[in-house]
Simulated assay, not measured.
Amino acid sequence: MRSTIEMASTGHRPAIRLRPVPRYEPPFDDELTPQVWASARQLPLDWSARQVPRPAPAAEGTRPAPRPPVVAGASTDAKLAVRRFVHLCVEVLNGYRPAAHLRRLAMPSAAAEVVAEGLAGARRVAELRATSRVGGRRPRRPAPVAVLRLRLCEPRPGAVEAAVALVTGERTWAMALRLELHQQSWSATALRLI
């Protein structure tokens, strides 16, 4: 049995070859055996009568229960969202993007403040570049704003705070921001440049 069928080429067209289907195909969904994870000793969960326990009211003269400690660091999603937002802020500060691009990554209630802070930072960087002269001459290519260090903290699930050290030329800047998770997307609620 031949594995290919060849047709004679006509003109500038190549020959057509039909090849057989490989013998090892993945099974169809209806051919798969179901995976059972339950063991013989596992108890079934009854979800119909599930009640969420409420904290008991504190009696007078007693202290409320202590809150769980804040863990340094952040989840992977939060880290990715912060890095994306910081990258966008650096592009705004360097003049590669308009400050209005920060609006789409901010909460609607805080978007005006976030954009205003990004615009003020971009103006400060532009003024710094205009006044910085080396040997009486302005440098050909000004030093871009770059990230020196990024520190993250997730004080509660769904909220992440970051402190960023930025550098441009010989000047060091600090940026603080807060992102919160709303409807499956991270949005900025605060941005400060120092």
Results as ranks from 00 to 15, higher is better:
5 I>Y: 15
8 A>I: 10
11 G>I: 02
14 P>W: 08
14 P>H: 08
17 R>H: 10
19 R>A: 07
20 P>R: 14
20 P>C: 06
21 V>R: 10
22 P>M: 03
25 E>D: 12
26 P>F: 05
27 P>A: 12
28 F>D: 12
29 D>R: 09
29 D>V: 06
30 D>Y: 08
31 E>W: 00
31 E>V: 04
31 E>T: 11
32 L>H: 14
33 T>Y: 13
36 V>H: 09
38 A>Y: 06
39 S>Y: 05
40 A>L: 15
40 A>H: 14
41 R>D: 15
41 R>Y: 09
41 R>N: 15
51 Q>I: 14
57 P>I: 15
57 P>A: 04
58 A>S: 13
59 A>F: 13
60 E>G: 07
63 R>Y: 09
64 P>C: 03
65 A>T: 06
66 P>S: 15
67 R>C: 13
68 P>K: 12
68 P>C: 08
69 P>W: 11
75 S>C: 12
76 T>D: 09
77 D>R: 12
77 D>C: 01
78 A>R: 00
82 V>Q: 01
85 F>N: 04
85 F>Y: 03
91 E>S: 03
93 L>A: 05
94 N>W: 07
95 G>E: 06
97 R>E: 05
99 A>H: 07
102 L>R: 00
102 L>G: 01
103 R>C: 02
105 L>F: 06
105 L>P: 00
105 L>W: 05
106 A>V: 03
110 A>V: 01
110 A>G: 03
112 A>P: 10
112 A>G: 15
113 E>K: 10
113 E>N: 08
114 V>M: 02
115 V>D: 01
115 V>A: 01
117 E>Y: 01
118 G>D: 06
119 L>Y: 06
121 G>R: 03
121 G>Q: 02
122 A>M: 06
127 E>I: 12
128 L>W: 08
133 R>H: 15
134 V>Y: 04
135 G>D: 05
138 R>D: 11
138 R>W: 07
139 P>G: 04
139 P>N: 12
140 R>N: 11
141 R>S: 07
142 P>G: 08
142 P>S: 09
143 A>S: 09
144 P>G: 10
146 A>G: 08
146 A>E: 14
148 L>H: 02
148 L>W: 08
152 L>W: 11
153 C>Q: 05
153 C>F: 02
155 P>Y: 10
155 P>I: 13
157 P>K: 07
158 G>D: 04
163 A>V: 02
165 A>L: 04
165 A>Y: 02
166 L>R: 00
168 T>K: 04
171 R>N: 00
172 T>S: 09
173 W>M: 11
174 A>Y: 07
177 L>I: 06
179 L>F: 01
179 L>V: 02
179 L>H: 00
180 E>M: 09
180 E>D: 12
180 E>L: 07
183 Q>S: 15
183 Q>Y: 13
183 Q>H: 14
184 Q>C: 11
184 Q>A: 13
187 S>W: 00
191 L>D: 00
191 L>N: 02
191 L>Y: 01
